[in-house]
Design a protein around this nucleic acid. Structure first.
Lengths: 342, 342
DNA sequence: GCCGATTATGTAATCGATTACACGAATTGA
DNA sequence: TCAATTCGTGTAATCGATTACATAATCGGC
């Protein structure tokens, strides 16, 4: 039935090329050590036998796992797909496998992460989740994996790991400035969940820019959300009930903006006629929502690639570079959901 | 800096328990072969040393990869998250790592999949993508991996792999029956993309049930879509332009329903006042859309688990069970987007 | 009390790569 | 011309498990 042709090993290649396995190995990993003639012969033998290196054997010998883990808060959020694509692209050339786990449906146990390192299942990790318990991180550091973890988009306050993220505060400022340019003065902001680092960064951007532009600020114009569609609905309800309604709302996420818009429309308001709405992220469907959403674009692909590169760098020369925070630029994408103030 | 305490090996345990490594290994994989007293001693030694088996070594010796690959058409679609959660849950107890790849952003090269098997990177695969080229699959079969691939949700017509999916035709029938029960007679259907097996199954369910109930059928009431938000918009435009408009629409996916609803509303129609809409999938946001979407729920979690179980079974006794198609039940979830016909 | 069967355990080969070390040949410099 | 390098390659140990085979101990039946 299944014939399962046994794959060629390095021995087979050595035999075919009339050299030792050491030489074959060197041709693969350190070609300069081998004379041109034998190198050619070995490469020919490799082609002939159809040899492919056995990762398990290599990993065992080299004492590595050959895999990295990506921790995603919620795989279901469309926001993450581009990032994951960027990450796998970043690792495509390498011989690392990319494991992905959803921290919402597979909550990280206290010692799970360090355990993965310990058991030789992973060589490094990229976390998109800023909610990893400090204790879990400390265990990794204790184990010596402290320099093989990088944070992406979110991060844990007070921990010294490299962080790749967008310039969240700048994104918020861009949004406010855009609305201000359109003539809006009363601008509300629907935030992310409490305690989230992105919430803070974006809220501060809002407050800062609003102050700089001399715009009025009322406490109820900062509305607590949680990046979800529902929190957008809630915000709509809140706004519909206000005496002094804002004429524009900047939401901390596109999903929130969708919820908000549908809520406002259901409440009889027009978007952008009565209220302009700006989101954050520029997820796929933002362009085809009705109205098409004005938003702050994060280069998700690039974010993913960068994180992959940084981690690969750390894995290549462990403990070399110092952890640091790098912020990628964001961009305002003007669409139909924002219009000049009446 | 990073002390990197060297993990205990099976040797260390053997030493501590005053037995051979063979015995330790047996305690772990075949406890019955070991006398109770030594078993206890070994277990104590394991606890003492904090020993964890090294997967790379085990995999090398056992000639396996210790990993399975999940092929997802588009990680960004919220539909897949629950499924992935179910899959990883299904593999949680096992010692298989779960690799996830997005076939849209990382298109599968002709020989990639078979290559993964060949290189010992994976022991099996679950494909959520029905668009895998037959040639790629044949290569896997040739290599002997034919019984370690299962399809989930989608499948490739004419290939003999196990398939786990929902009862798509029944879902379609349920939707039509529901609308019929509400008094609708003129029911349209927005399909999935051409050539997709789900498109066929659902469309056939629609046609069948519509015929059974003696409902009228006009060719333009079958509208070609592609599971996307945009195709929902297009469908709305199409419907708005019809002379003889349907009073209800069954969409082949929730995303399509969202696009459709927003398009219809933008066109001045009320949902469900003028037109009732029913979706398929019951993704997270369906319940909090406005109006909340009536839809056909697939048990995504269960689907994932099942696929994992089937694959694990195949891996445990290769080539034992025969491939077969199994359909999980679906369920009508009645919400606000469908109402009695006027 | 003896012999075959069973049970428990150890010895050592093995999986397929990498690499420290050794060695002979070629090259260099004085 | 000889010693010191450098270069190219092979030998064999090694990574950490599993397991076929061998061996010693125990048991049962007669």
């Amino acid at each position: 039935m299944s014939k399962k042709p046994k794959p060629a090993t390095i021995q087979d290649v050595a035999l075919a090329a009339l050299v030792s396995t050491a030489t074959v190995s060197r041709v693969l990993s350190n070609p300069d050590l081998v004379s041109k003639s034998t190198r050619v012969a070995v490469l020919e033998a490799i082609r002939e036998t159809g040899y492919r290196v056995n990762q398990a054997a290599r990993n065992l010998r080299m004492q590595r796992a050959g895999a990295v883990l990506v921790l995603v808060p919620n795989l279901g959020k469309p926001f993450y797909s581009g990032i994951l694509a960027g990450i796998s692209e970043g690792f495509a050339g390498s011989d690392y496998a990319v494991l992905i786990t959803d921290t919402e449906s597979n909550p990280l146990q206290e010692e799970t992460l360090a355990g993965y390192f310990r058991d030789g299942r992973i060589d490094g990790a990229i976390s998109l989740d800023g909610g990893i318990p400090s204790t879990a991180l400390q265990q990794c550091v204790t184990y010596g994996a402290g320099d093989r973890i990088v944070f992406l988009c979110e991060w844990v306050e007070g921990e010294a790991f490299p962080v790749i993220s967008s310039d969240n505060a700048e994104g918020a400022r861009l949004a406010i400035r855009h609305l201000h340019d359109l003539g809006h003065k009363k601008i509300a902001h629907v935030t992310g969940p409490d305690g989230n680092v992105l919430t803070t960064a974006r809220r501060e951007g809002v407050v800062e820019e609003r102050t700089r532009l001399g715009l009025p600020a009322r406490p109820e114009w900062i509305i607590r959300g949680d990046f979800s569609l529902e929190s957008g609905h809630d915000a709509a309800r809140r706004i519909l009930a206000m005496d002094d309604r804002p004429t524009a709302v900047f939401c901390a996420a596109d999903m929130v903006a969708f919820g908000l818009i549908s809520g406002l429309v259901a409440g009889g308001l027009k978007v952008p006629g009565d209220i302009s709405v700006v989101g954050f992220d520029d997820i796929e469907m933002s362009g085809s929502y009705v109205p098409a959403l004005t938003t702050i674009r994060q280069d998700r692909h690039q974010l993913g690639r960068r994180a992959a590169e940084v981690l690969l760098g750390q894995l290549a020369n462990p403990g070399k570079e110092l952890p640091m925070k790098s912020a990628l630029p964001v961009e305002l994408v003007t669409r139909a959901s924002s219009a000049p103030a009446n």
